Every structure is written in C-alpha cells, then in structure tokens.
Amino acid sequence: MATEFDSQLIESVAVRRSRLADALLYADNPTERRWRGTARLFLFSIVAAALVAAICVAVAFVGSLLSDQRREQEQRERQSASAPARTADPYAPIHRTGV
C-alpha cells in the first residue's frame, strides 16, 4: 500500500513539473503546447519521406546510367565483332573520287 502511494506521489510531482515547465515556456497558450509536439513529429516525418524519395530517385538514376553504359558497350562489342578486320597498310594507294 505504501509503495502505491509513493509511486502516485512521484508521478504527480513529475506531472506538476512538466506542467510548470510548459507554463514557463508557453505561458497561457495551451494550443501551442498541444500542437508543438505533433507539428514537430509531422515535420520530421516529411523530411524523412523526402529523404527516402531522394534516395530512391538517385538509385534509379544511377541504375539507368549503368544499364545504358552496359548496352552501349555490348553494342560496340557486337559492331567490332561483325565488322571485317581491316589492317592499315601505310603503302596502300589512296583513292580519291570526284574532282
């Protein structure tokens, strides 16, 4: 029974200190007290969502760049494999057409 009274007393002192601190910080404006914690949590969640979205966009962008580079490299390899091998002969005559 005594421990219940002690825990109730400690809890009531904690609540009173919290109320006094809120009254000191926010004076007579209970609306600010009520919305301040909720607004802060809401802003933190918006920032977190923006950060997650930015990371997703960055990962998609880098993945797209890498796949484009891989495609271009494969295309160059196919072109080099299908093109006939030319050896540069420095003594070959140069054929000009036209004028």
Score class of each variant (00 low, 15 high):
1 M>Y: 15
3 T>F: 02
3 T>E: 13
4 E>S: 03
4 E>K: 15
4 E>P: 01
5 F>I: 12
7 S>L: 15
7 S>E: 04
8 Q>W: 10
9 L>V: 14
12 S>M: 15
12 S>D: 09
12 S>E: 12
13 V>P: 00
13 V>A: 13
14 A>I: 13
14 A>N: 15
15 V>M: 05
15 V>S: 08
15 V>K: 09
17 R>E: 03
17 R>C: 08
17 R>P: 00
18 S>P: 00
18 S>C: 15
19 R>V: 11
19 R>S: 14
19 R>L: 06
19 R>N: 13
20 L>E: 11
20 L>N: 12
21 A>K: 08
22 D>V: 05
23 A>W: 08
24 L>S: 10
26 Y>H: 06
27 A>I: 11
27 A>E: 07
28 D>I: 02
29 N>Y: 10
29 N>F: 02
29 N>A: 03
30 P>A: 01
32 E>A: 09
32 E>S: 07
33 R>F: 02
34 R>M: 08
34 R>A: 12
34 R>V: 09
34 R>Q: 11
35 W>N: 09
36 R>W: 04
37 G>S: 03
37 G>Q: 05
38 T>D: 11
38 T>E: 10
39 A>E: 09
40 R>F: 02
41 L>C: 12
41 L>D: 02
42 F>Y: 15
42 F>W: 14
42 F>M: 09
44 F>L: 13
45 S>A: 15
45 S>Y: 01
46 I>H: 02
46 I>S: 01
46 I>A: 01
46 I>W: 07
47 V>G: 02
47 V>H: 06
47 V>N: 07
47 V>Y: 02
47 V>E: 08
48 A>S: 11
48 A>H: 05
49 A>C: 10
52 V>N: 00
52 V>F: 01
53 A>M: 06
54 A>Q: 01
54 A>S: 07
54 A>G: 10
55 I>E: 07
56 C>T: 07
56 C>E: 14
57 V>Q: 05
57 V>C: 02
57 V>M: 08
57 V>S: 03
59 V>Y: 03
59 V>T: 04
59 V>W: 04
60 A>D: 02
60 A>W: 00
60 A>G: 12
62 V>R: 09
62 V>F: 03
63 G>D: 00
64 S>E: 11
64 S>D: 06
64 S>G: 11
65 L>K: 04
65 L>T: 04
66 L>C: 10
67 S>N: 07
67 S>T: 04
68 D>A: 09
68 D>G: 03
68 D>K: 10
68 D>S: 08
69 Q>E: 05
69 Q>A: 14
70 R>G: 14
71 R>M: 09
72 E>S: 04
74 E>T: 13
75 Q>R: 11
77 E>Q: 05
80 S>W: 13
80 S>M: 08
81 A>L: 08
82 S>Q: 14
82 S>I: 13
83 A>Q: 11
84 P>S: 04
85 A>L: 11
85 A>R: 05
89 D>L: 13
90 P>G: 05
91 Y>L: 11
91 Y>K: 05
92 A>H: 00
94 I>T: 06
95 H>R: 10
95 H>I: 08
96 R>P: 00
96 R>A: 14
96 R>V: 13
97 T>K: 14
97 T>H: 07
98 G>I: 06
98 G>M: 00
98 G>W: 03
98 G>L: 04
